[in-house]
Design a protein around this nucleic acid. Structure first.
Lengths: 193, 193
DNA sequence: CGATTACTTGGACGATAGTACAACTAGTAC
DNA sequence: GTACTAGTTGTACTATCGTCCAAGTAATCG
Protein backbone atom coordinates (compact mmCIF):
# COMPACT_ATOMS: atom_id res chain seq x y z
CA UNK A 1 0.00 0.00 0.00
CA UNK A 2 2.83 2.31 0.84
CA UNK A 3 4.93 1.33 -2.14
CA UNK A 4 2.09 1.83 -4.51
CA UNK A 5 0.97 4.77 -2.49
CA UNK A 6 4.07 6.78 -3.25
CA UNK A 7 3.65 6.39 -6.95
CA UNK A 8 -0.03 7.01 -6.82
CA UNK A 9 0.60 10.02 -4.66
CA UNK A 10 3.05 11.22 -7.24
CA UNK A 11 0.44 11.06 -9.92
CA UNK A 12 -2.22 12.52 -7.73
CA UNK A 13 0.18 15.30 -6.79
CA UNK A 14 0.48 16.32 -10.41
CA UNK A 15 -3.27 16.30 -10.71
CA UNK A 16 -3.68 18.32 -7.56
CA UNK A 17 -1.23 20.86 -8.87
CA UNK A 18 -3.38 21.20 -11.95
CA UNK A 19 -6.46 21.54 -9.79
CA UNK A 20 -4.81 24.34 -7.87
CA UNK A 21 -3.84 26.08 -11.10
CA UNK A 22 -7.36 25.87 -12.40
CA UNK A 23 -8.79 27.20 -9.15
CA UNK A 24 -6.36 30.09 -9.23
CA UNK A 25 -7.33 30.80 -12.81
CA UNK A 26 -10.97 30.74 -11.76
CA UNK A 27 -10.32 33.33 -9.08
CA UNK A 28 -8.48 35.45 -11.60
CA UNK A 29 -11.51 35.33 -13.86
CA UNK A 30 -13.86 36.21 -11.02
CA UNK A 31 -11.55 39.06 -10.14
CA UNK A 32 -11.48 40.36 -13.67
CA UNK A 33 -14.97 39.67 -15.00
CA UNK A 34 -17.03 38.69 -12.00
CA UNK A 35 -18.60 35.37 -11.15
CA UNK A 36 -20.80 35.62 -14.21
CA UNK A 37 -17.69 35.47 -16.38
CA UNK A 38 -16.70 32.06 -15.10
CA UNK A 39 -17.06 29.46 -17.84
CA UNK A 40 -15.04 26.40 -18.60
CA UNK A 41 -13.65 28.19 -21.60
CA UNK A 42 -12.64 31.44 -19.93
CA UNK A 43 -11.07 29.58 -17.04
CA UNK A 44 -9.17 27.28 -19.37
CA UNK A 45 -7.90 30.19 -21.42
CA UNK A 46 -6.82 31.96 -18.25
CA UNK A 47 -4.97 28.86 -17.10
CA UNK A 48 -3.42 28.27 -20.51
CA UNK A 49 -4.97 24.85 -20.91
CA UNK A 50 -7.66 23.38 -23.08
CA UNK A 51 -11.32 23.52 -22.22
CA UNK A 52 -11.56 19.78 -21.97
CA UNK A 53 -8.94 19.68 -19.27
CA UNK A 54 -10.97 22.01 -17.13
CA UNK A 55 -13.96 19.72 -17.42
CA UNK A 56 -11.70 16.77 -16.68
CA UNK A 57 -10.90 18.11 -13.23
CA UNK A 58 -14.22 19.81 -12.60
CA UNK A 59 -16.93 17.96 -14.42
CA UNK A 60 -19.49 20.65 -13.81
CA UNK A 61 -19.24 24.41 -13.41
CA UNK A 62 -20.70 24.12 -9.93
CA UNK A 63 -17.82 21.94 -8.85
CA UNK A 64 -15.46 24.62 -10.04
CA UNK A 65 -17.23 27.40 -8.17
CA UNK A 66 -17.44 25.36 -5.00
CA UNK A 67 -13.73 24.65 -5.16
CA UNK A 68 -12.92 28.31 -5.80
CA UNK A 69 -15.02 29.54 -2.92
CA UNK A 70 -13.56 26.91 -0.64
CA UNK A 71 -10.09 28.05 -1.60
CA UNK A 72 -10.62 31.71 -0.72
CA UNK A 73 -12.42 30.69 2.45
CA UNK A 74 -9.44 28.58 3.45
CA UNK A 75 -7.10 31.49 2.91
CA UNK A 76 -9.20 33.79 5.03
CA UNK A 77 -9.57 31.18 7.73
CA UNK A 78 -5.83 30.81 7.90
CA UNK A 79 -5.34 34.56 8.20
CA UNK A 80 -7.82 34.92 11.02
CA UNK A 81 -6.60 31.88 12.86
CA UNK A 82 -3.14 33.37 12.62
CA UNK A 83 -4.50 36.45 14.36
CA UNK A 84 -6.28 34.42 17.00
CA UNK A 85 -3.27 32.31 17.85
CA UNK A 86 -0.77 35.10 17.46
CA UNK A 87 0.30 37.74 19.95
CA UNK A 88 -0.62 41.38 19.96
CA UNK A 89 -3.83 43.35 19.73
CA UNK A 90 -6.28 41.05 18.00
CA UNK A 91 -8.82 43.75 17.34
CA UNK A 92 -6.23 45.92 15.65
CA UNK A 93 -5.03 43.00 13.57
CA UNK A 94 -8.61 42.43 12.46
CA UNK A 95 -8.91 46.09 11.55
CA UNK A 96 -5.77 45.84 9.47
CA UNK A 97 -7.15 42.77 7.74
CA UNK A 98 -10.32 44.64 6.89
CA UNK A 99 -8.47 47.68 5.64
CA UNK A 100 -6.56 45.45 3.27
CA UNK A 101 -9.75 45.23 1.24
CA UNK A 102 -9.17 48.80 0.13
CA UNK A 103 -5.71 48.18 -1.19
CA UNK A 104 -4.04 45.29 -2.91
CA UNK A 105 -6.52 42.77 -1.54
CA UNK A 106 -9.45 44.59 -2.98
CA UNK A 107 -10.01 42.48 -6.04
CA UNK A 108 -9.65 39.30 -4.09
CA UNK A 109 -12.08 40.50 -1.45
CA UNK A 110 -14.52 41.50 -4.15
CA UNK A 111 -14.25 38.05 -5.63
CA UNK A 112 -14.97 36.52 -2.27
CA UNK A 113 -18.01 38.68 -1.76
CA UNK A 114 -19.29 37.76 -5.17
CA UNK A 115 -18.87 34.08 -4.48
CA UNK A 116 -20.53 34.47 -1.10
CA UNK A 117 -23.53 36.13 -2.63
CA UNK A 118 -23.65 33.31 -5.10
CA UNK A 119 -23.69 30.92 -2.17
CA UNK A 120 -27.08 32.18 -1.10
CA UNK A 121 -28.60 30.23 -3.98
CA UNK A 122 -26.53 27.06 -3.80
CA UNK A 123 -27.03 25.11 -0.61
CA UNK A 124 -23.76 23.29 -1.19
CA UNK A 125 -21.89 26.58 -0.89
CA UNK A 126 -23.65 27.88 2.20
CA UNK A 127 -21.50 26.19 4.85
CA UNK A 128 -18.34 27.35 3.13
CA UNK A 129 -19.57 30.93 2.92
CA UNK A 130 -20.57 30.81 6.56
CA UNK A 131 -17.14 29.90 7.77
CA UNK A 132 -15.31 33.21 7.62
CA UNK A 133 -18.10 34.68 9.70
CA UNK A 134 -17.65 31.97 12.29
CA UNK A 135 -13.95 32.67 12.33
CA UNK A 136 -14.52 36.31 13.12
CA UNK A 137 -16.95 35.22 15.84
CA UNK A 138 -14.27 33.02 17.29
CA UNK A 139 -11.84 35.90 17.28
CA UNK A 140 -14.45 38.01 19.02
CA UNK A 141 -14.95 35.29 21.62
CA UNK A 142 -11.38 35.84 22.77
CA UNK A 143 -12.22 39.45 23.57
CA UNK A 144 -15.56 39.20 25.31
CA UNK A 145 -18.07 36.76 26.70
CA UNK A 146 -21.13 38.75 25.76
CA UNK A 147 -22.84 36.96 22.85
CA UNK A 148 -24.34 40.20 21.63
CA UNK A 149 -20.96 41.87 21.60
CA UNK A 150 -19.71 39.02 19.46
CA UNK A 151 -22.61 39.36 17.05
CA UNK A 152 -22.07 43.11 16.97
CA UNK A 153 -18.42 42.71 16.09
CA UNK A 154 -19.17 40.25 13.32
CA UNK A 155 -21.82 42.54 11.90
CA UNK A 156 -19.53 45.54 12.14
CA UNK A 157 -16.70 43.72 10.41
CA UNK A 158 -18.94 42.64 7.60
CA UNK A 159 -20.53 46.03 7.22
CA UNK A 160 -17.18 47.76 7.15
CA UNK A 161 -15.94 45.43 4.46
CA UNK A 162 -19.00 46.21 2.40
CA UNK A 163 -18.53 49.91 2.94
CA UNK A 164 -14.95 49.72 1.76
CA UNK A 165 -15.69 47.50 -1.20
CA UNK A 166 -18.93 48.93 -2.53
CA UNK A 167 -18.81 52.45 -1.23
CA UNK A 168 -15.08 53.03 -1.52
CA UNK A 169 -15.34 54.31 2.01
CA UNK A 170 -12.24 55.72 3.66
CA UNK A 171 -10.23 52.83 5.06
CA UNK A 172 -8.07 54.08 7.86
CA UNK A 173 -6.89 51.44 10.28
CA UNK A 174 -7.46 53.61 13.34
CA UNK A 175 -10.91 54.54 12.15
CA UNK A 176 -11.91 50.94 11.50
CA UNK A 177 -10.38 49.91 14.80
CA UNK A 178 -12.44 52.44 16.73
CA UNK A 179 -15.67 51.31 15.13
CA UNK A 180 -14.86 47.69 15.87
CA UNK A 181 -14.00 48.56 19.45
CA UNK A 182 -17.27 50.37 19.76
CA UNK A 183 -19.10 47.16 18.93
CA UNK A 184 -17.18 45.09 21.45
CA UNK A 185 -16.60 47.39 24.36
CA UNK A 186 -19.84 49.28 24.43
CA UNK A 187 -20.85 50.03 28.01
CA UNK A 188 -24.39 49.42 27.17
CA UNK A 189 -26.87 49.91 29.99
CA UNK A 190 -29.04 47.09 28.66
CA UNK A 191 -32.03 49.29 28.09
CA UNK A 192 -35.13 47.17 28.30
CA UNK A 193 -37.08 46.12 25.23
CA UNK B 1 -48.36 71.85 -26.00
CA UNK B 2 -51.00 70.84 -23.50
CA UNK B 3 -53.43 69.50 -26.11
CA UNK B 4 -50.80 67.38 -27.74
CA UNK B 5 -49.22 66.75 -24.38
CA UNK B 6 -52.24 64.92 -23.09
CA UNK B 7 -52.22 62.51 -25.97
CA UNK B 8 -48.51 62.02 -25.88
CA UNK B 9 -48.68 61.52 -22.15
CA UNK B 10 -51.30 58.88 -22.78
CA UNK B 11 -49.00 56.99 -25.06
CA UNK B 12 -46.04 57.47 -22.82
CA UNK B 13 -48.15 56.30 -19.89
CA UNK B 14 -48.84 53.04 -21.62
CA UNK B 15 -45.18 52.63 -22.36
CA UNK B 16 -44.23 53.42 -18.80
CA UNK B 17 -46.70 50.86 -17.55
CA UNK B 18 -44.99 48.29 -19.74
CA UNK B 19 -41.63 49.40 -18.46
CA UNK B 20 -42.82 48.91 -14.90
CA UNK B 21 -44.18 45.47 -15.75
CA UNK B 22 -40.89 44.44 -17.28
CA UNK B 23 -38.92 45.72 -14.30
CA UNK B 24 -41.17 43.80 -11.95
CA UNK B 25 -40.73 40.68 -14.02
CA UNK B 26 -36.98 41.22 -13.87
CA UNK B 27 -37.08 41.36 -10.09
CA UNK B 28 -39.16 38.21 -10.04
CA UNK B 29 -36.51 36.48 -12.11
CA UNK B 30 -33.70 37.73 -9.87
CA UNK B 31 -35.69 36.53 -6.89
CA UNK B 32 -36.23 33.11 -8.38
CA UNK B 33 -33.02 32.39 -10.26
CA UNK B 34 -30.59 35.09 -9.22
CA UNK B 35 -29.09 37.89 -11.24
CA UNK B 36 -27.38 35.38 -13.49
CA UNK B 37 -30.79 34.16 -14.62
CA UNK B 38 -31.75 37.52 -16.05
CA UNK B 39 -31.95 37.36 -19.83
CA UNK B 40 -34.22 39.08 -22.27
CA UNK B 41 -35.92 35.79 -22.83
CA UNK B 42 -36.52 34.79 -19.21
CA UNK B 43 -37.73 38.26 -18.34
CA UNK B 44 -40.07 38.34 -21.31
CA UNK B 45 -41.51 34.94 -20.46
CA UNK B 46 -41.99 36.04 -16.85
CA UNK B 47 -43.80 39.17 -18.01
CA UNK B 48 -45.88 37.26 -20.55
CA UNK B 49 -44.57 39.25 -23.49
CA UNK B 50 -42.32 38.52 -26.41
CA UNK B 51 -38.58 38.78 -26.23
CA UNK B 52 -38.51 41.56 -28.77
CA UNK B 53 -40.70 43.75 -26.62
CA UNK B 54 -38.25 43.50 -23.77
CA UNK B 55 -35.44 44.67 -26.03
CA UNK B 56 -37.71 47.42 -27.32
CA UNK B 57 -37.91 49.01 -23.89
CA UNK B 58 -34.45 48.05 -22.70
CA UNK B 59 -32.14 47.85 -25.64
CA UNK B 60 -29.40 46.19 -23.65
CA UNK B 61 -29.39 43.90 -20.66
CA UNK B 62 -27.46 46.49 -18.70
CA UNK B 63 -30.25 48.98 -19.12
CA UNK B 64 -32.62 46.41 -17.69
CA UNK B 65 -30.45 45.68 -14.67
CA UNK B 66 -29.87 49.36 -13.98
CA UNK B 67 -33.60 49.98 -14.08
CA UNK B 68 -34.29 47.03 -11.79
CA UNK B 69 -31.70 48.07 -9.21
CA UNK B 70 -32.97 51.63 -9.32
CA UNK B 71 -36.46 50.36 -8.67
CA UNK B 72 -35.62 48.38 -5.55
CA UNK B 73 -33.41 51.21 -4.33
CA UNK B 74 -36.32 53.60 -4.70
CA UNK B 75 -38.54 51.34 -2.66
CA UNK B 76 -36.02 51.07 0.14
CA UNK B 77 -35.37 54.79 0.12
CA UNK B 78 -39.07 55.41 0.49
CA UNK B 79 -39.29 53.01 3.44
CA UNK B 80 -36.40 54.58 5.29
CA UNK B 81 -37.51 58.10 4.58
CA UNK B 82 -40.87 57.12 5.98
CA UNK B 83 -39.12 56.08 9.16
CA UNK B 84 -37.07 59.27 9.30
CA UNK B 85 -40.05 61.54 8.82
CA UNK B 86 -42.43 59.47 10.88
CA UNK B 87 -42.96 59.41 14.63
CA UNK B 88 -41.84 56.78 17.07
CA UNK B 89 -38.58 55.04 17.85
CA UNK B 90 -36.54 55.31 14.66
CA UNK B 91 -33.98 52.77 15.76
CA UNK B 92 -36.65 50.22 16.51
CA UNK B 93 -38.31 50.87 13.18
CA UNK B 94 -34.97 50.27 11.48
CA UNK B 95 -34.60 47.02 13.39
CA UNK B 96 -38.01 45.93 12.22
CA UNK B 97 -37.09 46.79 8.66
CA UNK B 98 -33.97 44.68 8.92
CA UNK B 99 -35.79 41.77 10.49
CA UNK B 100 -38.18 41.77 7.56
CA UNK B 101 -35.34 40.30 5.52
CA UNK B 102 -35.85 37.04 7.36
CA UNK B 103 -39.50 36.75 6.51
CA UNK B 104 -41.61 37.73 3.54
CA UNK B 105 -39.10 40.30 2.35
CA UNK B 106 -36.30 37.80 2.21
CA UNK B 107 -36.34 37.11 -1.49
CA UNK B 108 -36.61 40.77 -2.31
CA UNK B 109 -33.75 41.63 0.00
CA UNK B 110 -31.68 38.87 -1.52
CA UNK B 111 -32.38 40.26 -4.95
CA UNK B 112 -31.26 43.68 -3.83
CA UNK B 113 -28.05 42.33 -2.38
CA UNK B 114 -27.35 40.46 -5.55
CA UNK B 115 -27.86 43.55 -7.64
CA UNK B 116 -25.71 45.59 -5.27
CA UNK B 117 -22.86 43.15 -5.58
CA UNK B 118 -23.28 43.38 -9.30
CA UNK B 119 -22.96 47.14 -8.97
CA UNK B 120 -19.35 46.78 -7.87
CA UNK B 121 -18.44 46.00 -11.47
CA UNK B 122 -20.62 48.53 -13.25
CA UNK B 123 -19.78 52.11 -12.46
CA UNK B 124 -23.19 53.18 -13.70
CA UNK B 125 -24.81 51.21 -10.89
CA UNK B 126 -22.55 52.37 -8.09
CA UNK B 127 -24.40 55.57 -7.15
CA UNK B 128 -27.68 53.72 -7.06
CA UNK B 129 -26.30 51.00 -4.85
CA UNK B 130 -24.76 53.59 -2.57
CA UNK B 131 -28.05 55.30 -1.87
CA UNK B 132 -29.63 52.98 0.67
CA UNK B 133 -26.47 53.23 2.71
CA UNK B 134 -26.71 57.00 2.65
CA UNK B 135 -30.31 56.76 3.72
CA UNK B 136 -29.41 54.71 6.75
CA UNK B 137 -26.70 57.24 7.53
CA UNK B 138 -29.25 59.99 7.35
CA UNK B 139 -31.46 58.08 9.76
CA UNK B 140 -28.51 57.67 12.06
CA UNK B 141 -27.81 61.37 11.87
CA UNK B 142 -31.13 62.03 13.58
CA UNK B 143 -29.95 59.98 16.56
CA UNK B 144 -26.41 61.21 17.10
CA UNK B 145 -23.89 63.76 15.96
CA UNK B 146 -20.89 61.50 16.27
CA UNK B 147 -19.74 60.60 12.73
CA UNK B 148 -18.23 57.38 13.96
CA UNK B 149 -21.46 56.37 15.61
CA UNK B 150 -23.19 56.95 12.31
CA UNK B 151 -20.67 54.84 10.45
CA UNK B 152 -20.97 52.16 13.11
CA UNK B 153 -24.73 52.03 12.77
CA UNK B 154 -24.57 51.79 9.00
CA UNK B 155 -22.02 48.99 9.22
CA UNK B 156 -24.05 47.17 11.86
CA UNK B 157 -27.22 47.42 9.79
CA UNK B 158 -25.49 46.06 6.74
CA UNK B 159 -23.75 43.30 8.63
CA UNK B 160 -26.97 42.23 10.31
CA UNK B 161 -28.74 42.06 6.98
CA UNK B 162 -25.97 39.87 5.66
CA UNK B 163 -26.12 37.64 8.71
CA UNK B 164 -29.84 37.18 8.28
CA UNK B 165 -29.70 36.61 4.55
CA UNK B 166 -26.61 34.47 4.17
CA UNK B 167 -26.34 32.91 7.58
CA UNK B 168 -30.00 32.51 8.32
CA UNK B 169 -29.15 34.08 11.63
CA UNK B 170 -31.91 34.45 14.20
CA UNK B 171 -33.83 37.60 13.46
CA UNK B 172 -35.47 38.85 16.60
CA UNK B 173 -36.44 42.49 16.59
CA UNK B 174 -35.29 43.08 20.15
CA UNK B 175 -32.00 41.38 19.48
CA UNK B 176 -31.33 43.39 16.34
CA UNK B 177 -32.42 46.54 18.12
CA UNK B 178 -29.96 45.98 20.94
CA UNK B 179 -27.08 45.48 18.55
CA UNK B 180 -27.99 48.59 16.63
CA UNK B 181 -28.26 50.56 19.87
CA UNK B 182 -24.85 49.29 20.88
CA UNK B 183 -23.37 50.86 17.77
CA UNK B 184 -25.02 54.21 18.32
CA UNK B 185 -25.01 54.72 22.05
CA UNK B 186 -21.68 53.23 22.96
CA UNK B 187 -20.09 55.23 25.74
CA UNK B 188 -16.73 54.81 24.23
CA UNK B 189 -13.79 56.21 26.10
CA UNK B 190 -12.05 57.17 22.85
CA UNK B 191 -9.01 55.01 23.36
CA UNK B 192 -6.06 56.59 21.65
CA UNK B 193 -4.46 55.33 18.45
C1' DC C 1 8.68 -5.24 -23.57
C1' DG C 2 3.32 -4.75 -23.14
C1' DA C 3 -0.45 -3.19 -20.06
C1' DT C 4 -2.47 0.01 -17.23
C1' DT C 5 -3.56 4.29 -15.64
C1' DA C 6 -3.62 9.34 -15.34
C1' DC C 7 -3.47 13.05 -18.08
C1' DT C 8 -4.31 15.86 -22.29
C1' DT C 9 -6.08 17.09 -26.71
C1' DG C 10 -9.19 18.64 -30.60
C1' DG C 11 -13.53 18.60 -32.11
C1' DA C 12 -18.33 18.04 -31.96
C1' DC C 13 -23.40 18.23 -30.25
C1' DG C 14 -27.48 20.62 -28.95
C1' DA C 15 -29.11 24.52 -26.31
C1' DT C 16 -29.39 29.17 -25.39
C1' DA C 17 -27.70 33.66 -25.41
C1' DG C 18 -27.87 38.99 -27.29
C1' DT C 19 -29.37 41.43 -30.75
C1' DA C 20 -31.26 43.02 -35.08
C1' DC C 21 -34.89 43.66 -38.46
C1' DA C 22 -38.93 43.75 -41.39
C1' DA C 23 -43.75 43.38 -40.92
C1' DC C 24 -47.98 43.98 -38.43
C1' DT C 25 -51.44 46.52 -35.14
C1' DA C 26 -53.62 50.25 -32.94
C1' DG C 27 -54.28 54.59 -31.62
C1' DT C 28 -53.90 59.65 -33.04
C1' DA C 29 -53.63 63.81 -36.37
C1' DC C 30 -55.27 66.01 -40.26
C1' DG D 1 -60.60 58.36 -45.39
C1' DT D 2 -54.78 58.74 -45.37
C1' DA D 3 -50.46 59.54 -42.84
C1' DC D 4 -47.87 58.93 -38.86
C1' DT D 5 -46.00 56.99 -34.78
C1' DA D 6 -45.64 54.03 -30.60
C1' DG D 7 -46.19 49.53 -29.60
C1' DT D 8 -45.73 44.61 -30.81
C1' DT D 9 -44.62 40.34 -33.08
C1' DG D 10 -42.08 36.42 -35.38
C1' DT D 11 -38.01 35.13 -37.04
C1' DA D 12 -33.32 34.79 -37.95
C1' DC D 13 -28.25 35.52 -37.45
C1' DT D 14 -24.14 34.76 -35.01
C1' DA D 15 -21.73 33.72 -30.86
C1' DT D 16 -20.95 31.22 -26.87
C1' DC D 17 -22.32 28.14 -23.60
C1' DG D 18 -21.95 23.19 -20.91
C1' DT D 19 -20.89 18.91 -21.84
C1' DC D 20 -19.41 14.89 -24.02
C1' DC D 21 -16.25 11.68 -26.58
C1' DA D 22 -12.75 9.31 -29.22
C1' DA D 23 -8.11 9.59 -29.75
C1' DG D 24 -3.36 10.57 -28.30
C1' DT D 25 0.59 11.10 -24.78
C1' DA D 26 3.32 10.03 -20.86
C1' DA D 27 4.36 7.96 -16.73
C1' DT D 28 4.20 3.69 -13.93
C1' DC D 29 3.56 -1.43 -13.10
C1' DG D 30 4.60 -6.32 -13.94
Amino acid sequence: MNDEGEHIDGRKARGNRRRAEIIEATLAVVTRDGAAGVTHRTVAKQAGITTSLSTYYFATLDDLLVAALSSVADTYTARIRQIIDGPGDKLRALAELIVESAGPGRERALAERELSTLAARRPALAPVARRWREDVAELAATLTDDPEAIAALVAASDGLCTAILIDNAPADTGYVHRILARAVHAHHATAAS
